[in-house]
Nucleic acid binder design. Structure first.
Length: 339
DNA sequence: AAATCGTGGTC
DNA sequence: TGACCAAGATT
């Protein structure tokens, strides 16, 4: 950068003149700002907006969310993905309720110790809500900085991200919250991954990559590994009381969400009967196929209807199913039963 | 340090 | 169509 003060002034002036009207910019409530940052993790602004509105309606203050039950939170989060975010946020908010008298700490060390608060969310909330002098380095900022400084390091590496964060904090102006948002906004609107609008860029004269004609070569990122393909048979197990078997997923992937019993395709019905402890009648009704793409997996699911006269604790009345949180993956195949 | 964790949109 | 991307954190 040629001149830091010149750079900061240009960037902040551009930000103020082009500021988008986003719901979380209408509030100064640290709890609302924190909630928005948790939702925005790896998620586009346009996707977050309706979820944010729903949450501040259903859980208007920190105590309301802390006192809510996890099932209702997961149901309201349904479809947003990365479901551990809301479970971590729930735990963190409860800790604020118990330890900090329901007041979000205006203190980086205290705040960073909370569940789900990493380098980005910590910096973003502390700077935007309290104007503490910390950088908020997200994917936008990494891209902008790589181009400004003609930085060819692999931006997916944690060590590089930490270094970029320190570089920014060395030049951070007193308006830290606005500066952080301006840098992210620049990345989102002008300095985009493909076909960046350099002609419109308020800091074009500070950009080394633009000078060298290297904008489209940056940032450097190692490419993602290929996805693992998994094949499941998914079963609609119905009893004679109008109920269907649905159970809560364990583990880290979709943990807490409800699912139809699913088994690797070469699992026999006898094995499933043994595992569930109920006799199963297999009329060979195939409801259809679904492909669902995750970040690191692809599921290929085949749906089948089974009947049983046995008793099991995981039966749910068909009318109650819609009240339970279910992943998009499972919703796609569940819909086949209604057709 | 590298793998894992969702979903929807784009080209 | 497949690969990439989006206000990243955790283990």
């Amino acid at each position: 950068m040629l001149n830091i003060s010149d750079f900061n002034n240009n960037l902040l002036a551009w930000y103020q003149a082009n500021k988008r009207d986003l719901p979380w910019r209408r509030t100064s409530d640290p709890y609302h700002i924190w909630l928005s940052e948790v939702m925005l993790q790896q998620t586009q602004v346009i996707t977050v907006i309706p979820y944010f509105e729903k949450f501040i309606t259903n859980y208007p203050d920190l105590d309301a969310l802390a006192d809510a039950d996890e099932g209702s939170l997961l149901k309201d989060w349904e479809g947003l993905g990365y479901y551990n975010r809301i479970r971590n946020f729930h735990a963190a908010v409860k800790e604020v309720q118990n330890t900090y008298d329901s007041t979000v700490p205006d203190d980086p060390d205290a705040f960073f110790s909370l569940k789900g608060v990493g380098p980005y969310i910590g910096g973003a909330v502390q700077s935007i809500a309290f104007n503490n002098l910390l950088a908020a380095v997200d994917g936008n900022v990494l891209r902008v900085m790589a181009r400004l400084n003609l930085d060819y390091r692999d931006m997916t590496k944690a060590s590089v991200q930490k270094s970029v964060k320190q570089d920014i904090e060395a030049v951070l102006p007193l308006e830290a919250g606005d500066f952080n948002q301006a840098l992210m906004e620049l990345g989102a609107v002008i300095c985009t991954p493909r076909t960046p609008k350099c002609i419109m860029c308020p800091v074009q004269q500070h950009c080394e990559a633009y000078k060298e004609g290297q904008v489209s070569e940056l940032p450097v990122k190692k490419r993602a590994k290929s996805k693992k393909e998994i094949y499941y048979n998914v079963y609609f197990i119905l009893n004679d009381k109008g109920e269907i078997m649905l159970r809560k997923q364990e583990g880290t992937l979709l943990g807490g969400m409800y699912e139809l019993p699913k088994y690797d395709i070469d699992t026999s019905i006898e094995t499933i009967e043994e595992e569930l402890g109920v006799p199963l009648d297999h009329p060979n009704i195939h409801t259809g196929s679904v492909k669902h793409v995750f970040t690191h997996q692809v599921w290929y699911m085949e749906g089948y209807v089974l009947y049983t006269k046995g008793a099991h604790e995981d039966f749910v009345p068909r009318a109650e199913v819609a009240k339970l949180p279910m992943s998009r993956a499972m919703q796609k195949i569940y819909r086949q039963l209604e057709m």
